[in-house]
Amino acid sequence: MTSVAHSERPRVLVARAVFPDIIDLLREVAEVEATPDDAISTPETLRRRLADKQGAFITGSERIDAALLDACPLLRVVSTMTVGVDHIDLAACAARGIIVTHAPDVLTETTADFGFALLLAAARRVGEAERYLRAGQWTKWSVDLFAGADIHGATLGIVGMGRIGQAIARRAALGFDMRVLYHNRNRLSEAIEADCGGAQHRALPALLAESDHVLLALPYSPQAYHLIGAGELALMKPGATLVNIARGGVVDEAALAQALHNGRLGAAGLDVFEGEPAVNPVLLAAPRLVLTPHIASSSLPTRRAMARLAVDNLLAVLQGRPPLTPV
């Protein structure tokens, strides 16, 4: 790669500490202001540090809104290493001619692996059992010790049948002989349904009523806020499992905790939370609930691929080429 003269280089903010060797690729064409202390702590700090920048490398923790953009008149491109873009005001960016890119595809399989792992851990009560053993409470074997629900041969309902949902469906049908139902705004083609183990489209109420396990993998939007609330949880089979790897706001957390306390649900697994990184205390007190800190895509190869794609998108735009994966 040919270096650009110092005086001609655009300025880029990297808003979170991330793989230094990948960020070094940006330094060939840009003046990079990195974040050595892991993350930018406040919106005001982000606004101040972006004010004289042409490019931004962000993650899902940094919010790009109209107020920030008004303070950053030079900004040309925002590149997030996430696939979701609910933390970016796309309309405000478009109105100002700012290109937004994201990182689809590279995290699909890893996230699907984790979604299935969380389903298994919740339904088979893995978290409870480990804590019980570590606390020294295991003194004898019993027939019903942490007896959970079967995954193989059961019915899985997937809400959100995009790339990740389809990857989960293939694992379910081909690996665990599960019957797969899905809910999407639009029905998939017959060819995709067949590739997903004969997945069948359902309206959301029907999917909830028929499924032994429900997994949420839909993109977040205002319409998805508390899509799963008390009414929807009441439609689910007694003893069913709910897993959320989408966004925290999709689930009414208080209603979920209540459904676990009263035994309506058999188990649940959450990798995302409405106020993350803060976690609603009602969840911490709920039984039969596996909680993980938003790590569905967190394998080292995948996180490196996400960061590299974000950098490649920045390099493309700053060098006058089309971005690889625009939103």
Results as ranks from 00 to 15, higher is better:
residue 39 A to V: 09
residue 184 N to H: 13
residue 115 G to H: 01
residue 274 E to G: 03
residue 169 A to K: 04
residue 113 D to A: 09
residue 254 A to T: 14
residue 178 M to V: 02
residue 240 A to R: 07
residue 155 T to A: 15
residue 317 V to A: 10
residue 103 A to Q: 06
residue 219 P to M: 11
residue 122 A to H: 04
residue 69 L to R: 04
residue 231 G to Y: 00
residue 67 A to P: 00
residue 262 N to R: 14
residue 254 A to I: 13
residue 277 P to I: 13
residue 323 P to I: 14
residue 10 P to G: 13
residue 216 L to W: 00
residue 221 S to V: 13
residue 3 S to V: 11
residue 106 V to S: 04
residue 145 L to H: 11
residue 182 Y to V: 10
residue 294 H to G: 07
residue 180 V to H: 00
residue 313 N to W: 08
residue 29 V to R: 02
residue 209 A to S: 13
residue 296 A to S: 12
residue 135 A to Q: 13
residue 42 T to P: 02
residue 103 A to Y: 08
residue 234 A to T: 03
residue 82 T to Q: 03
residue 70 D to L: 10
residue 76 R to T: 02
residue 76 R to K: 15
residue 254 A to L: 14
residue 19 F to E: 14
residue 81 M to S: 06
residue 142 S to K: 14
residue 96 R to F: 09
residue 26 L to M: 06
residue 59 T to S: 13
residue 181 L to V: 04
residue 202 R to N: 00
residue 291 L to A: 05
residue 47 R to I: 04
residue 101 T to L: 09
residue 172 A to N: 03
residue 293 P to T: 09
residue 289 L to R: 01
residue 258 Q to I: 09
residue 200 Q to I: 13
residue 68 L to Q: 01
residue 103 A to S: 15
residue 187 R to H: 11
residue 3 S to A: 14
residue 187 R to L: 05
residue 155 T to Y: 07
residue 242 L to Q: 04
residue 126 V to K: 04
residue 141 W to D: 13
residue 288 R to Q: 09
residue 212 D to S: 05
residue 259 A to G: 04
residue 227 L to K: 10
residue 281 P to G: 12
residue 127 G to Y: 12
residue 175 G to Y: 11
residue 294 H to S: 08
residue 253 E to Y: 13
residue 170 R to L: 01
